[in-house]
């Protein structure tokens, strides 16, 4: 058990906090993607299994547009692209399945669309990982003994801003109220004259928009490539399960928890096993508390 002794050595405390800091940054990305899952789950009880590809497309397209538009002008284009991509997924894969009440249908269809997007990206941008230049300086900021990259701070701030923006939209605007109404009771909302099908499309648009934005945020911190989304999306689902599929706060707490556990595992155990604890955590949470740590338990009606 040499990792325990490593952990106990005094000078490592600063490394420990260093790892926690980068864990938080990664965790916020998970939280943003998990937040995207929550948006579509709220309106239609469906999820986009190709959420990781929405993220990847955001990052790849962002990288392509960067030389022409510059970083800040590229962002709104990516957001709009994300919305369009989400709407396409909903119309092609989810709506026909909702109409035939086929759970198997939307799961398989969003997976299929996901692998199509990924394969297309491989053919357009190649199979190698690319470097995404950060708009901020590459030198680390020192906070006490901990060194943090500006890009990591941007991930945290950007993710929080994005979630705050969507939440504000939902609470303040009339479209947002339609969204909330549909989430609470889709049948009643439909009877009140809300076009729930359009609300569902909108939720997919917003969900993919947050994912695309998360892609641009995370790209400078990790490598950018066609397969970058798959593992992120799976772990974000883990976060959504840990935090519950109906709690934004749960997503943030779950995301940070998972991010920190992962970076610690990566350092103290082995980088190869970095992805394992999160996935095991999901299996355990589901076995013990299927509604998630923060989720509301629903009463089954017979």
């Amino acid at each position: 058990m040499d990792w325990i002794s490593t952990l106990l050595q005094a000078p490592t405390t600063s490394i420990f906090w260093q790892l926690v800091a980068s864990g938080v940054a990664v965790g916020m990305i998970y939280a943003t993607i998990a937040f995207g899952y929550q948006l579509t789950f709220a309106t239609s009880k469906t999820l986009n299994f190709g959420q990781g590809e929405a993220l990847m497309l955001g990052a790849m397209l962002g990288l392509t547009l960067l030389p022409y538009l510059g970083y800040w002008l590229m962002l709104p284009v990516i957001l709009i692209f994300g919305m369009a991509q989400g709407a396409v997924v909903e119309r092609l894969g989810v709506r026909p399945a909702i109409e035939t009440k086929s759970e198997f249908g939307w799961i398989m269809a969003t997976i299929a669309l996901g692998i199509i997007f990924r394969n297309m990206a491989e053919n357009i941008w190649g199979r190698d990982d690319l470097k995404f230049p950060s708009p901020l300086p590459e030198t680390a900021i020192e906070l006490g003994t901990v060194r943090i990259l500006p890009a990591e701070i941007m991930v945290v701030v950007g993710a929080l801003l994005m979630m705050a923006a969507v939440e504000t939209f939902n609470r303040r605007s009339i479209y947002g109220k339609a969204f909330v109404a549909t989430s609470n009771d889709i049948d009643a909302a439909g009877l009140m004259g809300i076009d729930t099908r359009r609300v569902i499309t909108m939720s997919y648009a917003m969900s993919s928009m947050t994912a695309a934005f998360a892609g641009v945020l995370v790209a400078p911190v990790t490598l950018t490539g066609a397969t970058m989304g798959a593992v992120l999306a799976l772990k974000a689902f883990a976060v959504a399960i840990i935090g519950g599929l109906d709690s934004a706060l749960g997503a943030i707490v779950g995301g940070i928890l998972l991010g920190v556990i992962e970076t610690l595992t990566g350092y103290y155990v082995s980088t190869g096993y970095k992805d394992v604890p999160g996935l095991i955590l999901v299996l355990i949470v589901l076995a013990i508390r299927p509604a998630g740590l923060f989720g509301r338990r629903t009463i089954k009606k017979v």
């Binding site: 092609l92 894969g93 026909p96 399945a97 086929s102 198997f104 249908g105 398989m108 269809a109 997976i111 299929a112 669309l113 996901g114 692998i115 199509i116 990924r118 394969n119 297309m120 491989e122 053919n123």
Partner: peptide, 19 residues
Amino acid sequence: DYRLTIFGLMILFVVFYLP
């Protein structure tokens, strides 16, 4: 190179038109 795209299209086709 487009193998996965073809598989994806086949899944979509089967799920919706040949369940």
